[in-house]
């Protein structure tokens, strides 16, 4: 597998990452060498093999129950907001035409 400049730009869009021309060129070269390395996996016959699952001893699913956090934690969460209006998170307008 080999990546072209356009592929890297598309991936950067999917990942919501702004890349400079230099970064795009570097990424193209470096991703290529990493992909060449991991491509060795393609040669392994896995026709009869199941994908690895979670270890069986894990506690697994639990009920999704609401648990409140204390006031100190609430205030810390709010204070981490880049922008807020009293107890609410303020974000840029979301109703715009998607780029892709």
């Amino acid at each position: 597998m080999s990546l072209k400049r356009e592929d890297v730009k598309h991936l950067a869009d999917l990942a919501r990452l702004e890349l400079s021309e230099d970064e795009t060129r570097m990424a193209e070269k470096e991703l290529d060498s990493i992909l060449k390395y991991v491509d060795r996996l393609q040669k392994i016959d896995t026709a009869e093999v199941e994908p690895y699952a979670m270890p069986s001893k894990s506690t697994g699913w639990r009920k999704d129950e609401f648990s409140a956090c204390d006031e100190a934690a609430t205030e810390l969460i709010l204070s981490n907001f880049p922008e807020r209006e009293s107890g609410l998170l303020s974000v840029p307008p979301v109703f715009e035409t998607p780029k892709k």
Binding site: M1, V38, L41, I44, T46, E50, P51, Y52
Partner: peptide
């Protein structure tokens, strides 16, 4: 690419 990379890697992980 999902099957060729991610799923294949998960299968080799089993091996």
């Amino acid at each position: 690419y999902y099957d060729a990379y991610y799923v294949q890697a998960k299968k080799v992980q089993t091996l």
